[in-house]
């Protein structure tokens, strides 16, 4: 049985995979956090260590886990009568929920995970990933984390090509007046430096890489699906290619990675414990490939569709293959792809 952990509503990286699981008649169960917290799905822990969800014994029946953006902060919409206690209540309940689900994940350690939960949490830390990437022989732009302006100025002077600044972990969305705000990668210029105080929150700075083009590479257990994000005109001082993603002069093009780069990326992903992820690489003007970051649950659908890669189908086939192997069934082939077992979806 394949367990799909995701959001309750449509999730662009999950639903297309589920469509293929249905097509192949693969046995799967889909769970989301809110449905479990609200009791829509029956959950209980047994004294003998078993966890039962809607009658499914997780340790016994679940062989594969497809993990997509499951854990999230609780909305607590029904706690409006205690507004002054809300932050503390939210913090307490989030910790309670996290302990429940981390224990569930721990007891599912026998299963094949796509991606591994703990590895994907570690991968959120760009500093750690940068270290692993360098160890795997990948070129990484010179990076500095500091909290003092004089340290930043010193680094700035040593990098005549300029610096960018970006979150170490992740920047979510801030909603106001019908708009969503977030932090993109930003160019460090004289105005930025003037506005920077002498002491500040530890912040990541990186030397600017003059891009030939950027690569968004979807990785699935040793296979690569690279998309070159290319423009004839990037404009001046473009720090983040996401800013021009929707422009009609930005092309998403299939690309063949050099073998040496594939070997290094594969070694990096294995050292990070990641079976899947979206890897960002810059090809610089000297033809070198520079590792930027990896997102284990990155969005693959748009670049995958633009390059006609059928990534969602390949993910489904991987899940089915691993489930068959773990269940002692024959390997996947077009002749024995279809399996007949009941599937349920909790949403």
């Amino acid at each position: 049985m394949i367990l799909v952990l995701t959001y309750r509503k449509y999730e662009q990286g999950t639903d297309p995979v589920i469509d293929w699981l249905i097509r192949y008649d693969a046995p799967f169960v889909r769970l989301d956090l809110l449905s479990l917290l609200e009791g829509r799905n029956r959950l209980h822990f047994e004294d003998d260590g078993r966890i039962i969800i809607d009658g499914y014994d997780l340790q016994d029946q679940i062989k594969v886990v497809f993990y997509r953006r499951f854990l999230r902060s609780l909305p607590l919409d029904n706690c409006q009568e205690l507004p002054h206690h809300l932050p503390q209540l939210r913090s307490d309940l989030n910790r309670e929920a996290a302990d429940v689900f981390r224990e569930i994940f721990r007891r599912l350690s026998h299963a094949h995970w796509l991606p591994d939960f703990e590895a994907s949490e570690r991968a959120d830390n760009k500093l750690h990933m940068t270290k692993l990437a360098r160890a795997a022989g990948l070129r990484v732009p010179s990076t500095l984390v500091c909290n003092r302006k004089d340290t930043l100025l010193d680094f700035y002077r040593k990098k005549p090509g300029g610096l960018i600044c970006k979150p170490i972990n992740f920047c979510g969305y801030y909603f106001r007046d019908g708009f969503a705000f977030t932090a993109y990668t930003k160019m460090v210029d004289e105005d930025f430096l003037k506005a920077t105080p002498d002491r500040f929150f530890p912040t990541l700075f990186q030397e600017v890489v003059e891009r030939d083009f950027e690569l968004r590479i979807f990785y699935l257990d040793g296979k690569f699906f690279p998309t070159a994000i290319y423009s004839n005109d990037y404009g001046e001082n473009l720090a983040d290619v996401k800013l021009i993603a929707e422009e009609d002069t930005t092309h998403n093009l299939p690309f063949a990675l050099p073998e040496e780069l594939k070997e290094r990326l594969d070694a990096f992903m294995k050292s990070a414990g990641l079976t899947t992820g979206s890897i960002d690489v810059l090809k610089d003007m000297d033809g070198r490939h520079q590792f930027i970051e990896v997102n284990p649950v990155g969005q693959y659908l748009a670049p995958g569709r633009k390059c006609n890669y059928f990534i969602e189908k390949k993910i489904a086939e991987w899940l089915i293959q691993k489930n068959r192997e773990a269940s002692g069934l024959r390997s996947l082939s077009p002749q024995n792809l279809t399996v007949t077992s009941p599937s349920i979806t909790a949403t």
């Binding site: 297309p16 469509d19 293929w20 249905i22 097509r23 299939p254 390059c307 006609n308 189908k313």
Partner: peptide, 16 residues
Amino acid sequence: IIAFKPLDRDWDQSNE
């Protein structure tokens, strides 16, 4: 001489 790969011409859909 070769910068990018041509788009694959496969077509498929999960629906019967």
